[in-house]
Amino acid sequence: MPDPDRRTVLSADGITLSYDRADIVTGLSVEIPDGSFTVIVGPNACGKSTLLRGLSRLLTPSAGRIVLDGREITSYPAKEVARRLGLLPQTAIAPEGITVADLVARGRYPHQNLLRQWSGADEQAVREALDATGTTGLAPRLVDELSGGQRQRVWVAMVLAQQTGLLLLDEPTTYLDIAHQVELMELFRTLNREGRTIVAVLHDLNHAARYASHIIAMRDGRILAEGPPGEVVTADRVEEVFGLPNVVIPDPVTGGPLVVPLGAPTRREAQR
């Protein structure tokens, strides 16, 4: 479990992030509210995944800085960052023939060293991570044999085994059917309520509106709006961000905002 006394804070201060010398994000500042379930939304190629990579130190800003727990993130040793901040990227590869328990155990890497490659704390963290994601029964199975939804829960378990107060998730529900998407979103909400700060990049606006406590809406590498779903998810705002004419009605289940598109617009935004 993350230490409740330790305030985990993550923020970006005027950062510029680029690939191949092309700036994707320029001079962006953002603060992740402590204990929040923050969701980053925006059209394709708006820089939302890039921002997540910057926040998790996978991409070094060419200007500005990322601050983690009051210190610049680059001032920490790599393993120390990994003990505070866990990331589930889209590019995770499950080695052929690996079992679920072994894969989850790889999340313990930042807590291990050359001499101590398996401890009681490792065992316990793996058990708790399997338990939290409902994958205890899958532990001895091969990851290759699992369904997409099960597999994604196993990857979440791996990141949980890292025992970080902060969880960053890059499109964790993409390619899953709707039932598995909802199941994962519920899991993230539970993890958030247990005290972890969660930052997720999502495509589905209605999932963002339903589960997030804080939404960051991006377009063209800039933040257009941020705040609680009720303030950010409005018809005007959604049209501004996605270029999609729509109406927002109250969600019949939660009472929160629900986006209903008004049919095909002429889409001018850059396709990926």
Binding site: S56, L58, T91, I93, R106, Y109, P110
Partner: peptide, 20 residues
């Protein structure tokens, strides 16, 4: 060796878990 095992999971997972 432990770093290579993290690398098996992809560059991003390896980097995020503290192996460079």
């Amino acid at each position: 060796v432990p770093r290579l095992r993290q690398l098996d999971l992809g560059d991003d997972v390896a980097a995020a878990s503290g192996a460079r």
